[in-house]
Simulated scan of single mutants.
Amino acid sequence: MFVFKGWTRSVGISALTLALWMVSTGGALAAPTVKFAAPPWPGVTVKTAMAQRILEAAGYDTHVTNASWTIALQGVARGDIDADLGIWMPTQKSTVEPMVKSGKIDLLVKNVPDAQYDLVVPDYVWNAGVHSIADLNKYADKFDHRIYGIEAGNDGNQVMIDAIKNDTYNLGDWTLRPSSTAVMLTAAGRKIDDKEWIVFLGWKPHWMNIKYDLKYLKDPKQIWGGGSVVYTAVNPTFEKKNPNVIRFLKQMVVSSDIQSDWVYDYGYKHESADEVVDRWIKNNMDMVAQWLDGVKTADGSGPALAAVKKELGG
């Protein structure tokens, strides 16, 4: 009997404490927090900000960790991070596939199903007859036997380093010049302005596809692994416990052209991610509605779309 009374008293104290806490906080439970990771790439930066803005309007808290893509993915595998919207396949396959097979991460959806990562040339080089990687060595002198790459250690660089080492496409006496993405694009822009020949690593989504008229070279030997896609990776435990957020993330799919527009405004015109996100959401509520089909607010009180429209307009 004594135990029963003590239990009753504990429940009463707990109920009183909860009641006082709810009064002090306006009666609302703390909003769930969705934790994202994003490597320092403009496309992923804006896309992640887009997801954050929509979820926050729906009542969630969000947090983003900026880190290299390998560290970000490791965070997802550990459960420190819930989702990463920037997994490029097949270029990151060697790292990603073992994590998927071991159950440490899930690849939820192809959020950019028509991405591309290959060698590119300006349109005037294409018009001169360079349509394939196999055509490069015919015009080696015009290219100075050089391919322009990005940061050392990047998977795309390695594809071409291996091709040179193995004399694939007769590129054995070529060199790859690694640099930062910004330096590579500056060099490309200068040569394009002067109508000089250049071949470099290109990808979409990216503003380079809007600023310049580029052609992606055919790859008959498929050293680049075929067509590229960008995945959303999630932690499996988070996926099971948060079906509402997962429904949104699974439906948040864009074309490379749309994301290239985001990257152009953010990465080339240097608008803030918030400016790009808020304007796009307001002007594209029809697509946001597709992303939020069947998704509720964080407290489950109503459709998330209504909350987003109320806060962001459109």
Rank of each mutant, 00 (worst) to 15 (best):
L201R: 11
A58F: 07
F36Q: 00
M208N: 04
L171Y: 08
A58E: 05
L55R: 08
N137W: 09
E311Q: 10
K250E: 12
P113E: 09
I81G: 00
S14I: 14
V183H: 06
P90C: 10
G302R: 12
T168Q: 12
I281H: 00
S272R: 06
N283R: 11
N242G: 07
M22W: 11
A57P: 06
F238S: 06
D219R: 00
A67I: 03
A38H: 00
K241R: 15
V295K: 08
Y60G: 05
D144T: 04
A140I: 06
N127D: 07
D265R: 15
G202H: 06
Q259Y: 15
K296S: 13
S228H: 15
N170G: 06
T181S: 05
Q251T: 02
P303N: 12
G189E: 08
K269F: 11
A72H: 10
Y268N: 00
T70A: 05
G225K: 01
W7D: 04
K138V: 05
R190F: 15
V125L: 02
G300R: 05
V234F: 05
I133A: 03
V229A: 13
S272V: 09
V76I: 12
V234A: 02
V230I: 15
A182P: 02
A115S: 03
I81R: 02
S228N: 15
T48P: 06
M208C: 03
T62H: 07
Q92L: 13
A28S: 13
Q222T: 12
T62F: 10
D299M: 05
A273T: 01
E97F: 13
K309E: 15
A83M: 03
D155M: 05
I147C: 02
K204I: 15
D265K: 04
K195D: 01
D219Y: 13
A187S: 09
D106C: 11
G225Q: 00
I281C: 00
M285G: 09
